[in-house]
């Protein structure tokens, strides 16, 4: 199979790589760049566990091919904040018990930051509508909505 090359920015660093053209962005991130914080939860772009930022907007990385991203700017959960300097949205999830197993969580945090970027003080209905493409099987969502509201407040304040 012909290989293709792609150059993009991931978490602020330029990356050039050769990939099988059918490689999904999520597999490129996880397997070639070892950024395993981005998860795969479904085969059908339902769950949102794979959410990353593409040029500042939340996208499902299982629904993109790596080769589509020439020149793009991608941010994953690892680029958002590490254990010693968590992003306010990550802190808000911890403070509000917005996670249990943590598998949906990177996607929720990435989507949450995107929501906060686009809505200064998102209300509950806005957050719910925006998050519809992200599934969580553990929390019942209540605390995720609270976390995102709190994280957004912190980000704008």
């Amino acid at each position: 199979m012909a290989e293709a090359s792609v150059t993009l920015t991931v978490n602020g660093r330029e990356v050039s790589a050769t990939v099988d053209p059918r490689t999904l962005l999520v597999h490129f991130l996880r397997e070639q760049l070892q950024l395993t914080g981005t998860h795969v939860g479904c085969d059908t772009s339902q769950c949102g566990a794979c959410t990353v930022h593409l040029d500042g907007r939340a996208v499902k990385s299982c629904a993109l091919l790596a080769v589509q991203l020439e020149g793009a700017d991608v941010t994953t959960i690892e680029g958002v904040g590490g254990p010693d300097e968590m992003h306010p949205m990550q802190t808000a999830f911890k403070e509000n018990h917005g996670l249990q197993c943590g598998f949906c969580t990177p996607g929720m945090v990435m989507k949450g930051i995107d929501i906060a970027n686009r809505h200064a003080a998102p209300d509950e209905a806005t957050i719910r509508r925006e998050l519809e493409g992200n599934l969580c099987r553990c929390t019942g969502y209540h605390n995720i909505v609270e976390s995102i509201a709190a994280g957004a407040r912190e980000m704008s304040g």
Partner: peptide, 21 residues
């Protein structure tokens, strides 16, 4: 108490089944 598990899970540092290599 805030959860001990959270920091690693929130920063993409958990090790789930597919993260083993």
């Amino acid at each position: 108490m805030k959860r001990v598990e959270d920091t690693r899970l929130l920063t993409g540092s958990g090790t789930y089944a597919d993260d083993v290599s």
